[in-house]
Design a protein around this nucleic acid. Structure first.
Lengths: 226, 226
DNA sequence: AAATCGTTGATAGTATTACTATCAATTATC
DNA sequence: GATAATTGATAGTAATACTATCAACGATTT
């Protein structure tokens, strides 16, 4: 098995958690804990108890719990970005590339053995429930200046490139893709918790339904214009 | 001028803030304060100082600050719902009704003199930045059982009805409308803070652009199917 | 082998938050 | 004029989100 590492912006952490045992322990334990407690209920104190270390030690890696969340979500986006690249570069038809990207965005995530410290299934649940919180803050502009959202932007840009290849005249490629990315998670959340807001809940495989929904929106939007 | 009142679910507050002076003071002062500080920075202590009352008094109206936020956002949705009803009931063509609804959802909100205690402009900014937080919590299912999200669901259902009238065969009316509602706010946020995720930022009137974007998505989605 | 450096653990401390409780003063209602 | 409800004033508490200090330990350098 290849030893891969997802490379992230240095500003996300004070010290690269992927470089030490303790750092990896933080990643390994924070994912199931945030998944269980929700981000509001999660604290560094609880994490330190779970991983048998101390609050002070965790603060040496992450300025605060918000930064840790941004780190985890950024990891997820970079991971997705990499998988899309990996699964589309052999395709010639941009429409097929776009379709494959939408498939990967919407599919139910399962464990990726290349990254044993990350429980991707739990992380995907965190992304559904918490990802918007990383930028819906008063410090969004400062955080953005530090490059904390580069992963999400890169993912958006890469898929938008497929859209442009399919139809160079379409006027909203980035808006369309950011909408697709947000909707992919939102509708899954609605299906589980607010089912009257969606049709995804009516069927045994909401992920497949969601893919069909988003695919139809995107393809119709692109083909009609230009 | 008619004296109107937006009727909301009783569970949103311990005591109806629209029924007393103090209650209206809470509404009047909390909107600009949350707008300024963001929901995380906002506290009942700060609000009590601003409105020259006490924390204890505020707690007699709202169980906690989360409930107050849900109350304000619910008010906004009910207000929008009412305005859509008001501005579409005279139209015969469902396509025109839908179009008018999308216009109202996406347009820049200005002061509505029917409700002097509510600064709709500030409230609209709160909705953009904070509305997702009212359901992205661990207590979403309990809150939902209490009916706290009825306003949003009703709005979604009413617009979805227009979609169904336009094309009864379209398989995702609610998902489409909830996507439109979320996107309406999201793209405005992106335009201001993460402009590389959208094209709305490139133009002098992002609201109009956003309307065109969402309109084209919705209409193309509906017309292609069925 | 000794000195030094960096990492972690252990402990303590602080301001703020998110409440809850109590009681007196005031106001509205019967 | 009595009484009930509302508000204000004050106090208190557990938890949170940190910051600071210092000792212990292992690895690296000289």
């Amino acid at each position: 098995m290849t030893v891969l590492q997802i490379r992230l912006n240095d500003n996300l952490s004070l010290k690269d958690p992927q470089s030490t045992e303790l750092g990896e322990k933080i990643i390994r334990h924070s994912i199931p804990l945030i998944d269980q407690l929700g981000f509001e209920g999660f604290t560094f104190k609880k994490l330190s108890v779970k991983m048998e270390s101390t609050e002070a030690s965790i603060y040496r890696y992450f300025e605060n719990k918000h930064r840790l969340l941004v780190y985890l979500i950024s990891w997820y986006w970079a991971w997705l970005d990499y998988r899309i690249e990996y699964d589309t570069h052999h395709l010639a038809d941009p429409l097929q590339k776009l379709d494959q990207a939408l498939r990967l965005i919407t599919e139910k995530k399962i464990q990726d053995n290349s990254f044993p410290d990350v429980d991707e299934e739990a992380l995907a649940r965190i992304v559904v429930a918490e990802s918007d919180k990383i930028y819906l803050t008063k410090q969004v502009d400062e955080d953005n200046k530090e490059g904390l959202f580069r992963g999400y932007k890169s993912l958006c840009k890469n898929i938008a490139r497929f859209v442009k290849e399919v139809n160079p005249e379409y006027p909203f490629p980035h808006a369309l893709v950011s909408t697709a990315l947000e909707t992919a998670n939102q509708q899954i959340f609605f299906a589980e918790h607010l089912p009257s807001l969606t049709e995804m809940s009516e069927v045994d495989d909401p992920y497949k339904r969601n893919y069909e929904f988003i695919r139809s929106i995107i393809f119709n939007a692109i083909n009609r214009e230009g």
